[in-house]
Design a protein around this nucleic acid. Structure first.
Lengths: 206, 206
DNA sequence: CGCAAGTGTACGACCGATCGTCTATGCCGA
DNA sequence: TCGGCATAGACGATCGGTCGTACACTTGCG
């Protein structure tokens, strides 16, 4: 018997945009079903629980975003160029989202991290895996750039973590002010984070 | 005059730690009252609504944090030294919170920003004011450092925003991994963000 | 000084709505 | 007719919020 209903996909799609827009806890199953045009009674046929839906949304969206990131970061170009393109595409994506729904919804992974990582262990674990992979993807590019002598960082992993942290922090601001303008600083800041430190830091050590 | 009660303060205290721990939407008024040891019926005598409580918690916590920041940032020391102390104290505060409740609760402002800034306009406005002030306080120190020739940034305001963004991003990671270790990178990253950019960026411009 | 009226504080019970979840059953293709 | 996909409806619990009232304390009159 093949599947005869696309209800699961409709729920996933609706849940994705609603969670992005309104978060997880403030969202009801009934509201998701209504937005998806699926009877509420069907929800628990397709998903074990509301939490299972959240995990499915995370998986689906991460799979899409990961392939986007991979496409950009594994291009045939200079490593730093690829990194720059990543920021440009991220910024463009957030702008597009703002255009379509009037509001900067931010990064769904960051949003759910701050909302749920201390609430449910399964979601925290999934988010950890996602950010681990994000950092690792950036790490590889930074390491490549370092081999070519384009950046001079000690610990590429830590540098990658800082770059992703900067990204999440700026996206937080973009959401708070509903303004994508400051995201333009991302690339410059990334370059700064990857620059060799000036050695006069001893002047301000305690 | 009628009876006096410390219920309002008890509610504020309990709400503060519970919101920090579990967020806003997932939290019920009844749960807050139970933790505070205050009858639920009293809640709406002291607060107009759950949202008004959240605003009061934000105000109270920001007032405390702002005086902490002011104390550190207006010390009689080199500007960069003061900035460094700010990070050290922030890290220490997060560590202390982790010790006391077993979990890194992160920054309550960042948490509520991602959870609520697209939900309720009053809370968004308050959070905007808070982060505006945070950025401004950092801005002043950076400007001072620039006057002394210790950093070479173009737009001190934008630099301050990036520093605060880096802070929020790293705190997000600390919460996600329940690990304050990586917060040690904050000071180095701050220095990087405030360093003059190497001028070979043209090599990777598109 | 004593005591009741008046005033504002504090609170338990309860509201309709909605929460996430489940079970009994309809329905359709094979 | 049969089997399993899909659904309607309702479950108990909890949601944010309201309301009537008992209490504590001041005040003013006798």
């Amino acid at each position: 018997m093949g599947r005869t209903s696309d209800a699961r996909e409709k729920i996933l799609t609706a849940a994705h945009s609603l969670i992005e827009l309104r978060g997880y806890s403030a969202l009801g199953v009934a509201e998701i079903c209504k937005a998806a045009g699926v009877p509420k009674g069907s929800f628990y046929y397709f998903f074990e629980s509301k939490e299972a839906l959240a995990l499915a949304v995370l998986d689906e969206h991460w799979e899409a975003q990961r392939s986007d990131w991979a496409r950009v970061l594994e291009e045939d170009a200079q490593p730093l160029s690829r990194l720059r393109r990543l920021f440009e595409e991220t910024e463009a994506g957030l702008r597009a989202g703002q255009q379509s729904c009037g509001t900067v919804s931010g990064c769904i992974f960051g949003n759910l991290t701050l909302e749920l990582s201390n609430q449910t262990e399964p979601i925290r674990e999934r988010l950890q895996q996602i950010f681990d992979t994000q950092v690792e993807m950036v790490d590889k590019v930074i390491a490549e750039a370092r081999e070519r002598g384009e950046v001079a960082v000690g610990d590429t992993r830590e540098a990658a973590r800082s770059v992703v942290a900067q990204l999440e922090g700026q996206v937080l601001f973009a959401k708070l002010y509903n303004n994508t303008q400051h995201l333009e600083a991302l690339w410059d800041n990334c370059l700064s984070l990857l620059s060799a430190r000036r050695t006069d830091t001893a002047a301000v050590s305690s």
